[in-house]
Protein backbone atom coordinates (compact mmCIF):
# COMPACT_ATOMS: atom_id res chain seq x y z
CA UNK A 1 0.00 0.00 0.00
CA UNK A 2 1.44 3.30 -1.15
CA UNK A 3 0.06 6.52 0.35
CA UNK A 4 0.41 9.50 -2.00
CA UNK A 5 0.45 12.68 0.01
CA UNK A 6 -0.09 15.18 -2.86
CA UNK A 7 2.32 17.58 -4.57
CA UNK A 8 5.96 17.13 -3.63
CA UNK A 9 5.13 14.17 -1.37
CA UNK A 10 3.65 12.28 -4.31
CA UNK A 11 6.62 13.16 -6.53
CA UNK A 12 9.12 11.84 -3.99
CA UNK A 13 7.10 8.70 -3.28
CA UNK A 14 6.75 7.76 -6.95
CA UNK A 15 10.44 8.45 -7.47
CA UNK A 16 11.19 5.93 -4.73
CA UNK A 17 8.60 3.37 -5.71
CA UNK A 18 9.74 3.35 -9.36
CA UNK A 19 12.82 1.48 -8.18
CA UNK A 20 10.90 -1.32 -6.49
CA UNK A 21 10.54 -4.72 -8.12
CA UNK A 22 6.98 -4.61 -9.48
CA UNK A 23 6.83 -8.37 -9.87
CA UNK A 24 7.36 -8.80 -6.12
CA UNK A 25 5.60 -5.76 -4.67
CA UNK A 26 2.13 -6.62 -5.90
CA UNK A 27 -0.76 -6.21 -5.84
CA UNK A 28 -0.46 -2.52 -5.13
CA UNK A 29 -2.97 -0.08 -3.66
CA UNK A 30 -2.38 3.64 -4.15
CA UNK A 31 -4.11 5.80 -1.56
CA UNK A 32 -4.65 9.54 -2.04
CA UNK A 33 -6.67 12.20 -0.29
CA UNK A 34 -10.12 12.70 -1.79
CA UNK A 35 -9.32 16.36 -2.52
CA UNK A 36 -6.19 15.40 -4.44
CA UNK A 37 -7.23 14.23 -7.91
CA UNK A 38 -3.78 14.83 -9.36
CA UNK A 39 -2.07 12.08 -7.35
CA UNK A 40 -4.52 9.53 -8.74
CA UNK A 41 -3.73 10.67 -12.27
CA UNK A 42 -0.01 10.44 -11.54
CA UNK A 43 -0.36 6.93 -10.11
CA UNK A 44 -2.19 5.78 -13.24
CA UNK A 45 0.47 7.31 -15.50
CA UNK A 46 3.13 5.72 -13.34
CA UNK A 47 1.60 2.24 -13.61
CA UNK A 48 1.15 2.67 -17.39
CA UNK A 49 4.85 3.49 -17.73
CA UNK A 50 5.68 0.45 -15.62
CA UNK A 51 3.49 -1.82 -17.73
CA UNK A 52 5.52 -0.84 -20.78
CA UNK A 53 8.83 -2.02 -19.35
CA UNK A 54 9.51 -5.73 -19.88
CA UNK A 55 10.16 -7.52 -16.60
CA UNK A 56 8.80 -4.57 -14.62
CA UNK A 57 5.27 -4.85 -15.90
CA UNK A 58 2.59 -6.49 -13.88
CA UNK A 59 1.65 -10.12 -14.02
CA UNK A 60 -1.27 -10.55 -16.44
CA UNK A 61 -2.85 -13.15 -14.14
CA UNK A 62 -4.52 -10.56 -11.91
CA UNK A 63 -5.03 -6.90 -11.31
CA UNK A 64 -1.68 -5.47 -10.30
CA UNK A 65 -2.94 -2.31 -8.74
CA UNK A 66 -5.94 -0.37 -7.60
CA UNK A 67 -6.56 3.09 -6.32
CA UNK A 68 -8.39 4.31 -3.26
CA UNK A 69 -9.20 7.65 -1.74
CA UNK A 70 -9.67 8.67 1.85
CA UNK A 71 -11.11 11.97 3.01
CA UNK A 72 -8.68 14.50 4.33
CA UNK A 73 -8.79 14.61 8.13
CA UNK A 74 -8.70 18.36 8.26
CA UNK A 75 -9.04 21.15 5.75
CA UNK A 76 -7.56 24.56 6.47
CA UNK A 77 -9.89 26.77 8.47
CA UNK A 78 -12.22 24.04 9.63
CA UNK A 79 -13.80 24.40 13.09
CA UNK A 80 -12.82 22.06 15.93
CA UNK A 81 -16.08 20.15 16.09
CA UNK A 82 -16.32 19.60 12.38
CA UNK A 83 -12.66 18.63 12.20
CA UNK A 84 -13.19 16.09 14.98
CA UNK A 85 -16.03 14.60 12.94
CA UNK A 86 -14.06 14.54 9.68
CA UNK A 87 -11.04 13.05 11.45
CA UNK A 88 -13.28 10.25 12.71
CA UNK A 89 -14.63 9.83 9.19
CA UNK A 90 -11.11 9.68 7.72
CA UNK A 91 -10.12 7.15 10.38
CA UNK A 92 -13.09 4.87 9.56
CA UNK A 93 -12.32 5.04 5.85
CA UNK A 94 -8.65 4.22 6.50
CA UNK A 95 -9.62 1.28 8.72
CA UNK A 96 -11.95 -0.13 6.06
CA UNK A 97 -9.25 0.30 3.45
CA UNK A 98 -6.46 -1.35 5.42
CA UNK A 99 -8.60 -4.23 6.71
CA UNK A 100 -9.82 -4.95 3.20
CA UNK A 101 -6.42 -4.72 1.49
CA UNK A 102 -4.42 -6.38 4.32
CA UNK A 103 -1.11 -4.93 3.16
CA UNK A 104 2.25 -6.47 4.00
CA UNK A 105 3.89 -3.10 3.54
CA UNK A 106 2.59 0.44 3.98
CA UNK A 107 4.78 3.11 2.35
CA UNK A 108 4.16 6.64 3.59
CA UNK A 109 5.89 10.02 3.44
CA UNK A 110 3.32 12.42 4.88
CA UNK A 111 1.53 14.74 5.19
CA UNK A 112 -1.38 14.26 7.63
CA UNK A 113 -3.38 11.95 5.37
CA UNK A 114 -0.97 9.14 6.16
CA UNK A 115 -1.64 9.15 9.93
CA UNK A 116 -5.07 7.42 9.88
CA UNK A 117 -3.63 4.83 7.47
CA UNK A 118 -0.69 4.19 9.83
CA UNK A 119 -2.97 3.87 12.87
CA UNK A 120 -5.13 1.42 10.93
CA UNK A 121 -2.03 -0.55 9.95
CA UNK A 122 -1.00 -0.71 13.61
CA UNK A 123 -4.42 -2.02 14.61
CA UNK A 124 -4.41 -4.57 11.79
CA UNK A 125 -0.99 -5.72 12.94
CA UNK A 126 -2.08 -6.02 16.59
CA UNK A 127 -5.11 -8.05 15.62
CA UNK A 128 -3.03 -10.28 13.36
CA UNK A 129 -5.05 -9.29 10.31
CA UNK A 130 -2.04 -8.15 8.26
CA UNK A 131 1.74 -7.81 8.49
CA UNK A 132 1.34 -4.12 7.63
CA UNK A 133 4.92 -3.00 8.19
CA UNK A 134 5.17 0.77 7.94
CA UNK A 135 8.03 2.46 6.11
CA UNK A 136 8.19 6.23 6.44
CA UNK A 137 10.34 8.53 4.29
CA UNK A 138 10.86 12.08 5.57
CA UNK A 139 10.86 14.65 2.77
CA UNK A 140 14.11 15.84 1.24
CA UNK A 141 12.88 19.33 2.13
CA UNK A 142 13.57 18.49 5.79
CA UNK A 143 17.21 19.10 6.64
CA UNK A 144 17.23 19.90 10.35
CA UNK A 145 13.69 19.35 11.64
CA UNK A 146 11.12 16.61 11.15
CA UNK A 147 7.71 17.41 9.71
CA UNK A 148 4.67 17.01 11.97
CA UNK A 149 3.74 13.60 10.56
CA UNK A 150 7.41 12.62 10.85
CA UNK A 151 7.45 13.58 14.52
CA UNK A 152 4.26 11.65 15.25
CA UNK A 153 5.49 8.48 13.55
CA UNK A 154 9.00 8.73 15.02
CA UNK A 155 7.95 9.29 18.63
CA UNK A 156 5.12 6.76 18.47
CA UNK A 157 7.62 4.28 16.97
CA UNK A 158 5.08 3.30 14.36
CA UNK A 159 7.50 2.76 11.48
CA UNK A 160 9.65 -0.33 10.92
CA UNK A 161 12.02 1.87 8.96
CA UNK A 162 12.08 5.63 9.35
CA UNK A 163 14.14 7.13 6.54
CA UNK A 164 15.56 10.63 6.56
CA UNK A 165 17.50 12.10 3.66
CA UNK A 166 20.10 14.33 5.35
CA UNK A 167 22.84 13.47 7.87
CA UNK A 168 21.92 16.49 10.02
CA UNK A 169 18.47 15.04 10.67
CA UNK A 170 19.77 11.51 11.20
CA UNK A 171 22.16 12.79 13.88
CA UNK A 172 19.24 14.31 15.79
CA UNK A 173 17.02 11.25 15.47
CA UNK A 174 19.16 8.16 16.14
CA UNK A 175 16.41 5.64 15.32
CA UNK A 176 16.13 7.08 11.81
CA UNK A 177 17.92 5.57 8.86
CA UNK A 178 19.96 7.44 6.26
CA UNK A 179 20.14 5.49 3.00
CA UNK A 180 20.66 8.19 0.42
CA UNK A 181 18.56 10.91 -1.15
CA UNK A 182 15.66 10.50 -3.57
CA UNK A 183 16.49 13.54 -5.68
Amino acid sequence: MVVLGSGGHTAEMLRLFKNFDASVYRPRVYVAAATDALSGVKATAFEKAWAGIPGKGSDPSGPAYQQAVIPRSREVGQSWTSSALSTAHAMLCALALVFRARPDLVLVNGPGTCIPVCLSALLARMLGVATAKIVYVESIARVYRLSLSGKILYHARLASIFFVQWPELQAKYPRSVLAGRLM
Binding site: N19, L105, V135, V137, S160, Q165, G180, R181, L182, M183
Partner: peptide, 15 residues
Protein backbone atom coordinates in the same frame (compact mmCIF):
# COMPACT_ATOMS: atom_id res chain seq x y z
CA UNK B 1 21.45 13.40 -7.94
CA UNK B 2 20.45 11.08 -5.11
CA UNK B 3 20.05 7.35 -5.54
CA UNK B 4 16.85 5.68 -4.28
CA UNK B 5 18.66 2.32 -4.41
CA UNK B 6 19.69 2.44 -0.76
CA UNK B 7 16.14 2.81 0.48
CA UNK B 8 14.87 0.13 -1.87
CA UNK B 9 17.52 -2.32 -0.61
CA UNK B 10 16.59 -1.59 3.00
CA UNK B 11 12.89 -2.17 2.34
CA UNK B 12 13.71 -5.36 0.39
CA UNK B 13 15.66 -6.54 3.41
CA UNK B 14 12.82 -5.63 5.78
CA UNK B 15 10.32 -7.54 3.65
Amino acid sequence: PGDPGGMVAAVDWLM
